[in-house]
Simulated scan of single mutants.
Amino acid sequence: MAEPGRVRSIRHSVRLGDARDIYLGTIVSPNTRRGYGIALAALVEAFGADSDVGLLDPDRVDGWFRFRWGGASAQTFNVRLASLRAACTYWAERCWLVGDPLQRLRPRPVPADRSRAVTRAEVTAILGLDVPLRERVLWTMLYETAARAEELLELDVPDLDTANRCARVTRKGGTVDVVAWQTGTARLLPRMLAGRRTGPVFVTDRKAKPHVAVADTDPGSGRGRLSYRRAAELFEDNTAGFTGGPFTLHQLRHSRLTHAAEDGASTPMLMTLSGHTSVRSLAKYARPGKDALLAWQANTDPAARRRR
């Protein structure tokens, strides 16, 4: 029986490591779970897996977060903060938190970026580089489908419908959707698969380590699923020599959507191509590039029309 006058706390004491694992277990999408896991792993490492999640101090969390990601880009800073905020919201709903350990932190303003799409000529040059077949397939598929790199790297061979040039992917947020490719991918993909019917579509050059999950291993060769980090490194290394390079894998998606907009694709078609559910989210991708602007100006110049 509680002592008279004493207020009994309704907060449940939960280990930070357990709180992290329980929250990540609620996220369906492997890509989202992996992304959120980066920030949460760093939090657990800094404050200890055995510490009480409810005792996270706002001042200490603020100092740690700014030290850990203060030098990162505004986008990375905001992504890591959003990951922690989503977890804290979940923990608070279960009475594991009383206050807000992130109350001192605010998202940073992200400067407008009007130059992320590469030109069609640059895309042609990138896709024509003398690189291993796996990279040629991934880069071509990324551009032709306008999919996120994480979505394609999570593909397994049974997800593919090569006859109809499409595949089932898990979009950001866990929605199952279909992406479609064109002739470039259709010509290269069968050569890379070489008759494989199971396992990840994109695999590493070497056999997977023993701790790699069976679902992320090709049963025939024993090679593991290609990681986003390695795929990104290879792309940036191979595009470092371009003017404005190195480029990122995301720029292939960005460029495809921009080029489709320049070619007159409707907003509904662009949303289907990209997997966006918000026109506002799509807007930054559907902005015509410099080459398209110059061509439009030349074609609509009254003086040029008089000379014809």
Rank of each mutant, 00 (worst) to 15 (best):
A2K: 02
R206Q: 11
R66Y: 08
S281L: 06
L189D: 01
V7E: 03
E45L: 09
H12I: 02
S278E: 06
G48E: 09
G174P: 05
A72L: 05
M141P: 06
R148L: 03
M141S: 12
R229N: 13
E144S: 02
S255K: 10
V98A: 09
E154M: 14
P268T: 03
C88S: 13
G264K: 12
Q75Y: 11
L257E: 00
G5V: 08
K284F: 06
C166N: 13
P210E: 08
T267E: 13
D205T: 13
K284D: 07
A265W: 12
L155E: 02
R168N: 06
K290Q: 12
A286G: 02
V157F: 05
Q182G: 12
T140K: 09
A19G: 02
T89F: 02
V98W: 11
A194C: 04
T183V: 04
D113Q: 13
A295H: 08
T277M: 11
L102P: 01
A213K: 15
L56H: 13
T258K: 05
R196G: 00
D113V: 08
N238P: 00
S73F: 03
T185Q: 07
T277V: 15
H250A: 02
F247V: 01
V131Y: 04
A215H: 10
D161P: 03
S83L: 06
R171I: 13
L102Y: 00
D177I: 07
V7Q: 03
Y285F: 10
R134I: 10
A39K: 02
P219F: 03
G245T: 07
A39F: 02
L105D: 01
T183N: 08
P4M: 02
S274V: 08
M269T: 12
D52A: 02
F235W: 14
